[in-house]
C-alpha cells in the first residue's frame, strides 16, 4: 500500500497570524488525504477555502502549522531547505495561472531552464524537450520566443517545462484561468493525456467544473476541510 500512495497528508492545519493581533486565521483545519501514484485529482471549492494554500503545502512552498506530509515515503517536514529545493526541482513540476516564461529565451531554452539546477542540459534533456514540445503541438516553434506565442501556446510550453525533469508529481494552480474556454478545454485534455502518458500524478486546483470533470477524482474543500 505504501508503494501505491505517493502523497499522504495527515491532520494538516495552516494558520496565518492576524494583522490586528487578534485570533489567527485558520485556513486549513485538520485536513487529511492520500494521493496514489498516477492519479489525477482536481481540488475545487470557493475562493478562500484554502485550495492554493493546500497546493503550496504539498509543493513545499509553505510549511503547515500542524500535521505531517509524506511524499514518496519521506516526511517533508524533516527535510532542510536544500533538500526541499532539490526535491522540488527533481520530483515536482509546477504550473501556474501565469506561464512565467523567460522572455529572453526561446521555447526550447525555456523548457530546459529547470535542468540548469543540476549543471547543464544534456542531450537526453534536449531530446525529451523536443519530444514533449512536439507532443503538445509546438514542434515547429522551438526557436520562437514567448512574445511570439499565443496564450495557450505559452501555457503548453509551461506544461512541458514542468515535465522536463520527469517529476512524480505535477501541481497545477488554475492552469486554465487565463485562457479562453476552447483553449482551456484543449489544455485540460492535454494535462489528462500527459498524466497517463508520462505516468505523473496530477493535482489541479481549479474553479472550472469542466476541467475538474476531466480529472479522475475531485476533492472539494470547504472551510479548510474536505467536504464529505
Amino acid at each position: 500500500m505504501a508503494d501505491v500512495m505517493l502523497l499522504q497528508l495527515k491532520n494538516i492545519s495552516r494558520e496565518f497570524p492576524s494583522a490586528e493581533g487578534g485570533a489567527p486565521l485558520e485556513v486549513l483545519r485538520g485536513l487529511s488525504m492520500e494521493v496514489a501514484r498516477g492519479e489525477s485529482i482536481a481540488v475545487v471549492g470557493p475562493s478562500g477555502c484554502g485550495k492554493s494554500t493546500l497546493l503550496n503545502l504539498i509543493g513545499t512552498l509553505d510549511q503547515p502549522s500542524g500535521g505531517t506530509i509524506n511524499f514518496d515515503g519521506r516526511d517533508l517536514l524533516g527535510l532542510d531547505a536544500d533538500e526541499l529545493a532539490l526535491l522540488r526541482n527533481r520530483e515536482m513540476g509546477f504550473i501556474f495561472q501565469s506561464h512565467h516564461l523567460l522572455p529572453q529565451c526561446t521555447v526550447m531554452e525555456n523548457v530546459l531552464v529547470p535542468t540548469l539546477a543540476h549543471g547543464r542540459a544534456t542531450a537526453t534533456d534536449e531530446e525529451r524537450a523536443r519530444r514533449l514540445l512536439d507532443r503538445v503541438g509546438l514542434g515547429e516553434r522551438l526557436a520562437h520566443r514567448p512574445g511570439q506565442l499565443s496564450g495557450g501556446e505559452r501555457q503548453r510550453v509551461a506544461v512541458v517545462r514542468a515535465l522536463i525533469n520527469e517529476p512524480q508529481l505535477l501541481l497545477a494552480d488554475e492552469p486554465t484561468g487565463a485562457l479562453d474556454q476552447a483553449t482551456a478545454d484543449q489544455l485540460g485534455q492535454l494535462l489528462v493525456e500527459l498524466n497517463a502518458e508520462e505516468n505523473v500524478t496530477l493535482i489541479t486546483v481549479t474553479h472550472s467544473e469542466k476541467l475538474a470533470n476531466q480529472m479522475a477524482s475531485t476533492v472539494e474543500l470547504k472551510d479548510g476541510q474536505i467536504k464529505s
Binding site: 523567460l102 522572455p103 529572453q104 529565451c105 531554452e109 531552464v113 540548469l116 547543464r120 542540459a121 534536449e126
Partner: peptide, 15 residues
C-alpha cells in the same frame, strides 16, 4: 542550454 547562455540571453534582452 547552459547557464552562460542564459546569462548572455538576459544581458542582450535587457541591454
Amino acid at each position: 542550454m547552459t547557464r552562460g547562455r542564459l546569462i548572455f540571453n538576459s544581458l542582450t534582452h535587457h541591454a
